[in-house]
Simulated scan of single mutants.
Amino acid sequence: MQTMPAHAAHHNDREIETLDEFDATVSARATLAGFRVQAVDLTDRTRELLTTDTAGAVFLGCPMREDAAAKVRADGAMVFPPVLDLPFDPYRGLLYSPDELFASLADGYESTPDALAYAWFQRTKADHDIFASTLRSIHDDSVSDALDELLRGTPVVGVMGGHAMARGTEAYAGAARLGRELARAGLTVATGGGPGAMEAANLGAYAAPYDAAMLADALRLLAKTPKFTPSITEWASAAFEVRSRWPKGGTSVGIPTWFYGHEPPNAFASHIAKYFANATREDGLLARCTAGVVFLPGAAGTVQEIFDNATPNYYESRGEPTPMVLVDRAHWTERLPTWPLLQALARERAMEDRIALVDRIEEAPEALKRLGS
């Protein structure tokens, strides 16, 4: 089974994103000239900053003592100071973890960094404050950079589907089994990072290192709290109970957005790329699904994702078309007749051999493999 590549192996070697990387760079190179240091607390590295060349370096949101800041500015470095009293770090170098976004969950979801970031977003969006919109843009760009670093060279398969799919249903269990099978086949599962079908697929990837009995037990535990309404606190707490019982879960990616603030991220994605701008998030999620996308039954959001994905496949604007597998014939031909339009678009295009409609979720991995070969 594949594990996701180590972060350090893939990021730009001029970027420093942890204190360990800072110490290793100063020790090995004896210079920080031209480096980018991102959201690293340097208050205890004053001696190193005072004695190391920092010409042309950029410090993005790095706390440091005033004498160190004065010295690096005198060297010709640029210093973007931390922005105080924000519920998020706009310069962050790494993706979020569930533990980070759900910190303080015991005090209620409203106390978590995730909920506080959404509240800040709502407040500043209404003000049309250019400083706030700049901070949101910097944050989202930092998240995209971290996501690229994490996924570079990794085969990624997207699993899309609606947030309404409840825990305890056969559809949810099927989506979880799909996520587990894809992860065990060496693919990195990526979802929209929210509840429902998205959570189920991330749960399946989390369960990949364990036997099938573990997933069945986890599904039973989660079924007691079927939806994130009326209580996100109870819904998320049930997920963390599963994580504490089976702490060594597999890796996957969730890519949610604060744009849909009523919809919390799920706790089973090991890496969470959460965005303020939904358009950036949507495009980024699909563009990174290099091994194809499975579309489970959903509503408007999933329909949009199907055609967001079909457009670059149609024009081959990202190179060779990637596989698209739609699951549930009745849903996609009768309830929301998306399949006939997708078929008509694909006719006599390179993407024609890269689309499939299957009746059952169990058929999706084989269809994905067939289309990708």
Rank of each mutant, 00 (worst) to 15 (best):
A6P: 09
H10A: 12
E17L: 14
L19P: 03
V26T: 05
V26W: 06
S27N: 12
S27Y: 14
R36K: 11
V37M: 09
T46Q: 09
L50I: 04
T54Q: 11
P63G: 00
R65I: 09
E66F: 07
K71V: 08
V72P: 06
G76W: 10
G76V: 06
D114I: 08
A115Q: 03
L116K: 15
A117P: 07
Y118W: 10
F121C: 12
Q122A: 12
D127I: 09
H128P: 05
I130N: 11
F131M: 12
A132C: 10
R136F: 07
M160L: 08
A166P: 10
G174Y: 06
A175H: 07
E181W: 06
A183M: 07
A185V: 08
L187V: 01
G192N: 08
G196V: 02
A197H: 02
A200K: 00
L203Q: 02
K224L: 12
I232M: 11
A236I: 11
A238W: 03
G250E: 02
G254A: 10
E263M: 04
A269I: 06
F276A: 07
A277H: 14
T280S: 13
A291D: 01
V294A: 00
G301L: 12
N309Q: 13
P312T: 03
Y315P: 03
S317F: 13
S317T: 15
P321S: 02
P323F: 10
L342P: 05
R360S: 06
A364V: 02
P365W: 00
L368I: 03
